[in-house]
Amino acid sequence: MVNDVKIDVRNLNVWFGSNHVLKGIKIGFKPNAVTAVMGPSGCGKTTLIRAINRLNELIIGSRTTGEIYIDAENIYSKETSVFELRRRVGMVFQKPNPFPKSIYDNVAFGPKIHGLSDENELPITVERALREAALWDEVHDRLQDSALDLSGGQQQRLVIARALAVNPEIILMDEPCSALDPMATAKIEALMRKLAEKYTVIIVTHNMQQAARVSDYTMFMYLGEVVEYGITKSVFENPQSELTEKYITGEFG
């Protein structure tokens, strides 16, 4: 069971104030695969992935019960270092948010604060991360330029590189292409498939065609609960739940 499931979510409940956003979520995410999390607005997709890197705790009034096991360790236990957790679990946001620093400094930020590379290794780490994010060729000669000068798609790949630079095991993506044009989207989608060879990738997406193109597994959520989960092909072609079918056929968004 341990090698079959990388992230084991057990009875996860999340409240924001009195709003019960996630209701008893039980799901297992498989390693070295892309899992798409889908559902209409407000179903809790973003809250779920933010529970995996405990970013919900930044919101005042949030309360979480239940457990999430990554490799048989409960990340909500008292002994867990949330900072170390966030190094292992990288996140890419809906709107690209590179820091107002140079391209180099953006990628170097993570390794610096975690003390992962010394002065000599840092440029090597940065190059490795940028290559892995398929951005090196476009920026290698202007690493000192401001990251904000890059296009939207490049910024998003920079954010991915930033996450890769600290050697994560899991990469969470919250609608990473929704602010990008089709060409940039295609590049990121290709990148996702490549990343899945090495990492566990979870993406939240509204776009069913994207989920069909990119993901190995799909999870469908509705009003804070898991409605269906399975291999993408079968979820789309042969949905078990009526809700899933309605969503797929576009009866509600």
Binding site: D71, S81, E84, L85, R87, I113, H114, G115, L116, N167
Partner: peptide, 12 residues
Amino acid sequence: MVSQRLSGKNGV
């Protein structure tokens, strides 16, 4: 955490 295998800066 298992992360001690990485020579990270001492959390303390």
